[in-house]
Design a protein around this nucleic acid. Sequence first.
DNA 1: AATATTTTTTAGGTTTGCCTAAAAATATTT
DNA 2: AAATATTTTTAGGCAAACCTAAAAAATATT
Lengths: 221, 221
Amino acid sequence: MLNYSTSEENYIKAIFHLQHSDGTVTTNELAAELKTKPASITDMMKKLKNKKLVHYQAYHGFRLSPEGKKVALGIVRRHRLWEYFLAEKLKFSWEEVHEVAEDLEHVSSKKLIDKLDEFLGFPRFDPHGDPIPDMHGRIETSRQVNLQDLPLNRPAVVSHVSDQSSEMLELLGHKKIGIGTRLEVKRKFSFDNSLEIKIRQQSPINISEQLSKNIFAKYDE
Amino acid sequence: MLNYSTSEENYIKAIFHLQHSDGTVTTNELAAELKTKPASITDMMKKLKNKKLVHYQAYHGFRLSPEGKKVALGIVRRHRLWEYFLAEKLKFSWEEVHEVAEDLEHVSSKKLIDKLDEFLGFPRFDPHGDPIPDMHGRIETSRQVNLQDLPLNRPAVVSHVSDQSSEMLELLGHKKIGIGTRLEVKRKFSFDNSLEIKIRQQSPINISEQLSKNIFAKYDE
DNA sequence: AATATTTTTTAGGTTTGCCTAAAAATATTT
DNA sequence: AAATATTTTTAGGCAAACCTAAAAAATATT
């Protein structure tokens, strides 16, 4: 795998994060994400096309080539391993890790990253719950997380309920929560660990700690 | 403290490492160290002079300003902390750490470095025995190291001998080793842990493990 | 289908950090 | 001290990665 400039890496990573279901991204979207002007995007896309990292035809958007995807997964791997390191070892808060990892991710020694991975115990998810690609670029699909562990405002879909008693199901039915329900945790009250959650367009409802501990969800989007 | 580009940082660091007793460095020396052409050095010196990091007069060499020294110590701190991390935590060998640290040192978040320092337990020397500046830029003078722990080809000066018995002194006298003797370890034989050392212009001599364990030295230069 | 709007690209310019070749200043020899 | 050699600087260019303004293509509106 060749070496790419910090700029090139940032473009590739941005395309990876923005890509729609069909994998395409438009010039303006990228420009907004990277806080550059559309003309700069066109410049770089020509370059990345030459290097065979993106498929690109003037006026028709672009998407990552298989090689481009590999590069993107490498960058994501570095980013998320550093995030894990910063949160877990250096005791940074979740909010702080992203910015610092933006810089660290561009140090591209493969040996460094693989040894860091080992040092951290081969973590599979970063502090935001996002999966960390392994050294072959394999990535796990999102894991189940307990409602109590969901970060605020992170869309998630209920995937599992551990207590199947009729009392539990009665309560869930009343609150209109079931497998597949899409929700976001809006607030956590530390006094009693109760949660305020939002389901679709409804006004937020409250959930006790007891109930929340039996509900698991997967990140959505 | 402002932020400087990777190039600017590399120039400042190189001046710091090359400076003579009077603090001056010449254009050709810097060009050799940085593997660039002399013309590029002149370009950059003008820039660093404008930023008040070096004192510079055309044709008369340059030296770091007080501000430049502060910046240099910051870079050295980052470099050596990362070296320590790589060797101590990620189990890199001494020879490998330098190259990777060359990249990591340019990630300049102060919080990152101070937290890394804390995580490592505020080490005062890096794996090569070089002192690590603290968060205020204070740096310890070189420490004593046992002859057995000296890296190969690292000039050092004998600073202490632990066994003062007459037998020991007789042997030392014979080998012409005393406090202040400047030497380099040229080889280590793992079979019996004997050392081959070079003293000034003499041809290398051999020292047994027993003897070497009683001799301590400080890094020179 | 013609026109208006939005998106994207082209053309040409800037800064940073490097280069080569020639000129200027300094240092060394004789 | 004059001639020669070395070091350093200047002058002018190049590539990367950005920019603005204008032109071209695609999309939306009437």
